[in-house]
Amino acid sequence: MSIHRTDLCAGLVVSTIGIAALAGALAMPTFADRNGDPLTAPGITPGIISGVIAVLGIVLLLRAMAGRGPRDVPVETWPPGAALRTVFTIVTALIYGVVLFGQVPFLPATAGFVFVFTLGAELMHPGRSRSIVALCLWAALLAGVSALAIQYLFTDLFLVRLPG
């Protein structure tokens, strides 16, 4: 049996989180110096839960090293082009959510994101039939209409203040 690489990485991450959280829980105060009941100390529950996570992570690690456990993990069967589409989606989402949202006025930020996302996703589609000019026009229309509609829905109908 070969080593299960995905589970090995997962086991390492999980056991590291468990051990780090356990160390954090042990460092929490008991408030005994303020006549607090040590049995209600804030670190008790996180300590036990992180201990369980660390143990489960180590079991996963050992199982992966022994080459045991189910092997049909989705990440190992990605279809062609999946990596490019995923990276594109994550990068554009991060740019919109972390950089643009709240820093740039809502309308241009949202319209810009929807335009770039729609155009990029269409260009990566293997069955694309429209020309680039037609795609740009369609993406621009979709971006403008959706940004205006979302702003109207939240600010005018549901009275939510939008950022930027």
């Binding site: 989606t89 554009t92 989402a93 991060l94 919109y96 959510g97 972390v98 949202f101 709240g102 949202t110 994101f113 929807v114 996302f117 729609t118 996703a121 269409e122 589609h125 979709l142 959706s146 940004a147 979302i150 939240f154 549901f158 939510v160 203040r161 939008l162 950022p163």
Partner: peptide, 30 residues
Amino acid sequence: REWLIGIIFVLCAVGSFAIAGRLFDVWVMI
């Protein structure tokens, strides 16, 4: 889906922000 997914993500971001008006919630969502 290429037309929808971008708009769905915007709704996720705006929806998370709308709960308490905190940008931090948008980062938590991501």
